[in-house]
């Protein structure tokens, strides 16, 4: 396997737990990620799965350093970025990009699509040839050039998500985090977005972390899979190995819970008591 782009050791994240916040004073910290170790090889697409609340998004947000870990290290190209300050992170930002789940709320309603895609370029010293670069980004995700002057409410859900991808890839980053980017879209649009991402990731040699709770999508897209539960890694392996021979019952349950478009009268029967 290629050398890792990310090399994460003992990663812990604790966040204030607002449900237990006393009337006065700070909310107690709740440990969301409880010590994770894994590598993301360069140029690979890694799926992160797990049920709701298992900490997938938290992990993703720690990787792109929207969150500061409470313990452990995040090696990015051999350098620990887990403690860098906002200022020290700035030069790294162009390499660590993200595509959001909700294409609506991730686009500012008051900026045109042009401005939305141009902003990261300007901010990262790519402000020259701005028009050209934005046009290129739009073309890459298959949007017509005249969309540049539109606002987000003038786009469909699938088109909005393409803008999200265009914005993330405009900087030619090394890493992209995709957090549930298709769960709000219908299957046809979903398939368009996924094939697009697959194609672009291969073309640009991107390293991608793809968060989803849909294992069917993960199987198609990813070379390796990390299965999470309650802030821990349950199982991590190459995709085919995981699907052909899941080691953990939790993984098997997750797989069995996916409704395949096939008739199976037994699927809804309660499991026979062991």
């Amino acid at each position: 396997m290629a050398e890792p782009l990310f090399s994460v050791r003992g990663l812990k994240v604790a966040l204030p737990d607002m449900t237990r916040k006393p009337l006065i004073g700070r909310a107690p910290l709740a440990e969301i990620l409880k010590g994770l170790d894994f590598d993301l090889p360069k140029g690979s697409v890694t799926g992160i799965v797990g049920e709701s609340g298992s900490g997938k998004s938290t992990l993703g947000r720690a990787l792109v350093r929207l969150l500061e870990p409470s313990a452990g290290s995040i090696g990015f190209e051999g350098r620990d970025i887990s403690r860098l300050s906002e200022g020290e992170l700035r030069p790294l930002r162009r390499d660590l990009q993200m595509i959001f789940q909700d294409p609506m709320s991730s686009l500012n309603p008051r900026h045109t699509i042009f401005n939305i895609i141009a902003a990261p370029l300007r901010q990262n010293g790519l402000g020259d040839r701005l028009k050209e670069r934005v046009a290129e980004a739009l073309q890459r995700v298959g949007l017509p050039q005249n969309f540049a002057s539109r606002y987000r409410h003038e786009l469909s859900g699938g088109q909005r998500q393409r803008v999200g991808i265009a914005r993330a890839l405009a900087l030619s980053p090394k890493f992209v985090l995709a957090d549930e980017i298709v769960s709000g879209l219908d299957v046809s649009t979903q398939a368009q977005i996924l094939t697009l991402l697959e194609k672009l990731a291969a073309e640009m040699g991107l390293t991608v972390a793809f968060i989803s709770h849909d294992l069917s999508v993960i199987r198609r897209l990813c070379q390796q899979v990390i299965v999470m539960r309650e802030g821990r890694i349950v199982e991590a392996s190459a995709t085919d190995a995981l699907f052909d021979n899941p080691q953990e019952t939790y993984t098997r349950d997750l797989l069995a819970a996916i409704p395949l478009p096939e008739i199976d009268p037994d699927w809804l029967r309660p499991k026979a008591p062991a």
């Binding site: 979903q190 996924l194 849909d214 069917s216 999508v217 993960i218 199987r219 198609r220 395949l260 096939e262």
Partner: peptide, 14 residues
């Protein structure tokens, strides 16, 4: 277009 993990390469056709 409906993805299925059992047959990854047959699925995902918009």
């Amino acid at each position: 277009a409906t993805p299925r993990y059992t047959d990854p390469y047959a699925s995902l056709k918009p």
